[in-house]
């Protein structure tokens, strides 16, 4: 592994406070959906971790929400800016146990890593259903891209401004699926865990120090021992999580 220089190709608004960042550079260290990249920003000491939305031979795509100091700063950077990025971090989603019709559940920014997962599942001949929850229609991003991949997409909004009014779990309760994959806020995770009919995988967020397993800043207890979210995760299996 090494820190690599990537160049910003695109950094544009995709929804309310949500930006699409296209970085061009060597993405060869990314090998699994659900991995993340961490970006060094001038003036900030720690790197910022971001879920990878997709990658190809010439670079990678990230979606981020400008909510804190780092992401606000990132949103101002022009095309052409060079950034030091560590890529291919963490253990991502395992598609082996998915079955034929897995359910992908994204809450808000959690839609991001599900995109490359969805692409991989379809390439493996599976028929994923994508269930995405947002606060309102102004917050929706990536839904068209999921449809273009060929997935069935169901949208939920808290205020009913698009799709089903209510939470993803309201819809999930009525669906049949072979397995599930999710990324989003922990409140949603707990609700999913209460009603899920199958095994599944959750991708966790954490305040990280290094992002590559050295500092023990993001350790959590699981049924399979202590795990570092950044190195042994961010994806954990339902059966190992202690809620």
């Amino acid at each position: 592994m090494e820190d690599k220089i990537f160049k910003i190709k695109e950094n544009s608004q995709a929804a309310r406070d949500v930006y699409h960042l296209r970085l061009e550079g060597d993405s060869s260290e990314i090998n699994c959906p659900g991995q993340f990249a961490s970006i060094k920003l001038d003036g900030l000491f720690l790197r910022r971790p971001f879920s990878i939305c997709s990658w190809d031979e010439s670079g990678l795509d990230i979606y981020y929400k400008a909510v804190g100091e780092g992401t606000a700063k990132l949103s101002t950077l022009p095309v052409g800016t060079e950034l030091s990025v560590l890529t291919g971090l963490g253990k991502g989603y395992d598609t082996a146990p998915s079955g034929d019709n897995p359910l992908l559940i994204g809450g808000g920014m959690g839609a991001t890593p599900l995109y490359c997962l969805c692409r991989k599942l379809i390439a493996e001949g599976k028929r994923p259903t994508v269930l995405l929850g947002f606060a309102s229609d102004k917050d929706i991003f990536l839904s068209d891209e999921f449809k273009t991949l060929g997935a069935d997409v169901i949208i939920c909004t808290d205020d009913g401004s698009c799709g089903h009014k209510g939470f993803v779990t309201d819809v999930m309760a009525g669906l049949d699926y072979s397995y599930f994959y999710t990324c989003g806020p922990e409140g949603m995770f707990r609700a999913i865990d209460r009603i899920a009919k199958t095994e599944g995988q959750f991708s966790f967020e954490a305040r990280m120090g290094c992002g590559f397993g050295a500092c023990m800043g993001c350790t959590c207890k699981t049924h399979k021992g202590n795990k570092r979210i950044c190195k042994d995760g961010p994806v954990l299996e339902r059966s190992e999580i202690i809620w």
Partner: peptide, 20 residues
């Protein structure tokens, strides 16, 4: 030792805090 609960890391100007 398991250490402290998380969050264990916070950023600050020119450095960071840890309570691992």
């Amino acid at each position: 030792r398991f250490g402290n609960p998380t969050p264990r890391i916070a950023e600050c100007p020119a450095g960071m805090l840890n309570a691992v």
